[in-house]
């Protein structure tokens, strides 16, 4: 993961600490270091994510388990790789019941705006359904779609597009959202 993406993720997770506003991309909306968040205002507090070597930390989940799965063009079906990652996610979530998750769905820029919103939602729902089928309690999960609004890679070819066609499971402390 690039530094930019890491920073973005950290800031986003801090923002997510106010778990009643899952829009972690909203500037100032429940903002980073805002209401009851683990991080200080404007600062990046790594203690929130925890030590990646600590199997119960969010950092471990993000880096070792894998917080995202990728999709083929126009598809929301889960590839075998995606299934194995999601199985591990479900396992972790089942062992760490103190966390809830927002499942984000994204699409690449090769589509119209509103259709991509729906496509992202479909992808997020596919992940959610799989996690539930693996025993994760439904009330711990919520979905949101960003369509093509929040790419993580900005070049305009398949190398970037394939990275943008993703679903990200974003953890937050608290058993329910």
């Amino acid at each position: 993961m690039t530094l930019a993406a890491k920073s973005l993720l950290l800031i986003a997770v801090l923002g997510l600490a106010a778990c009643n506003n899952p829009d972690r991309y909203g500037v100032g909306a429940g903002g980073p270091g805002g209401v009851g968040g683990p991080g200080g205002a404007g600062g990046i507090d790594t203690t929130g994510l925890g030590d990646p070597n600590n199997p119960t930390s969010i950092a471990f989940f993000n880096q070792r388990v894998g917080d995202r799965v990728l999709f083929a063009v126009d598809q929301s079906t889960l590839s075998p790789e995606a299934r194995s990652v999601l199985t591990a996610q479900a396992g972790w979530l089942n062992q760490n019941p103190g966390y809830a998750a927002i499942i984000e769905g994204h699409a690449d820029e090769q589509g119209t705006r509103e259709y991509n919103l729906a496509l992202g939602a479909r992808r997020a729902a596919a992940v959610q359904n799989f996690l539930i089928s693996q025993g994760v309690a439904a009330n711990r999960l919520r979905t949101i779609s960003y369509g093509k609004e929040r790419p993580i890679k900005v070049c305009s070819d398949e190398a970037c597009w394939s990275q943008n066609r993703r679903s990200v499971t974003v953890l937050s402390a608290g058993a329910g959202v």
Binding site: N20, N21, P22, D23, Y25, G26, V27, G28, A29, G30, R113, E114, L117, I144, S145, Y146, G147, E149
Partner: peptide, 26 residues
């Protein structure tokens, strides 16, 4: 502060509909 998308005018031009992430969800 929040993502806004695809606005539309009302037929008399006095109101606008749009999609907003202001509540955290579209």
């Amino acid at each position: 502060n929040s993502i806004v998308l695809a606005p539309r005018f009302s037929p008399t031009g006095d109101r606008i509909l749009y999609t907003s992430y202001e509540t955290g969800f579209p």
